[in-house]
């Protein structure tokens, strides 16, 4: 495990392996999301109370899960970078922030578009909604802090502290519907228990896995690019560029995805 972690921490090894798996992950992601969309928009029934507005759930809930999952992963990567000084971990943390912010934004907007017809309001200072909004600000603060420093090590260290401290917000979001009895409904899914019919559970499940993998796809593309950028003077990147020269840059970008 440690040997494997150490090898994966090597930028060159990461670049080669991630390049090989990226097309497969991308393909599976597309299939899962398309299947989820089909089931969610066509094949699943309308809810007996919420009718067709329930279809917003298939993007709202997976986005909300992602917004929390990505934050925890970002904080963990930042902590690993802070403690063991692993470059890849710093990069993973840095590039995760805008992706996580995107999913948080989607969660808030789709929640608002769902809340208007169901609750009669776009926004309420409910515990769940407020803590999710704070999550968006944590992401934005992290991004701002990253770009505030010229030196990458300093930026990584300072923003890592913010990411780790801010992680306390994630359990608050998660348990907010149990701790405070407010507008947002409690969760319908638990370990082995579900209050949702399979015809609605399947699209939710497919979209949730699809969104998770979509995060992995965007993360890998960005991390690979960032690895090249930061390692530009190293021998292996020089070698890679040697192999590419002679071809126009646009072809290189494409063949890079196909071959590796």
């Amino acid at each position: 495990m440690w040997v494997w972690l150490h090898r994966f921490g090597s930028p060159k090894y990461f670049y080669n392996v991630s390049g090989r798996i990226l097309p497969w992950v991308g393909g599976v992601t597309a299939l899962l999301i398309l299947a989820g969309l089909y089931l969610g928009l066509f094949a699943s029934p309308a809810d007996y109370q919420q009718r067709d507005s329930v279809r917003i759930m298939y993007i709202h809930v997976p986005s909300a899960w992602n917004s929390m999952f990505i934050y925890l992963l970002m904080a963990a990567a930042a902590a690993i970078g802070l403690i063991w000084n692993i470059k890849i971990a710093d990069i993973v943390a840095a590039v995760s922030a805008p992706i996580g912010a995107s999913f948080t934004f989607i969660t808030l907007v789709t929640g608002s578009l769902w809340g208007k017809p169901m609750w009669g309001t776009w926004w309420e200072w409910d515990a769940r909604l407020t803590s999710e909004l704070i999550l968006l600000f944590l992401y934005l603060g992290y991004i701002a802090l990253q770009s505030a420093f010229e030196d990458r090590r300093t930026a990584a260290r300072a923003s890592a502290v913010l990411a780790i401290v801010g992680a306390i917000n994630v359990p608050i979001i998660y348990y907010s519907v149990q701790w405070w009895n407010t507008l947002h409904q409690p969760q319908s899914l638990g370990m082995g228990t579900s209050a949702i019919h399979p015809s609605m559970l399947w699209p939710l499940f497919l979209m949730a896995i699809g969104f998770k993998l979509l995060y992995v796809v965007i993360l890998l593309i960005r991390t690979r690019a960032e690895v090249l950028e930061r390692e530009r003077n190293s021998a292996w990147v020089q070698e890679l560029v040697q192999d590419m020269t002679g071809k126009p840059a646009s072809d290189v970008a494409r063949s890079n995805h196909e071959q590796r």
Binding site: I221, R222, R224, E226, L228, R232, V241, V252, A253
Partner: peptide, 19 residues
């Protein structure tokens, strides 16, 4: 998100080739 990530990758590769 996907388009910007691919655009960034291409930009980095172009920069490396130019150098």
């Amino acid at each position: 998100n996907v388009v910007l990530a691919l655009g960034y990758e291409r930009e980095v590769l172009r920069g490396l080739l130019r150098t």
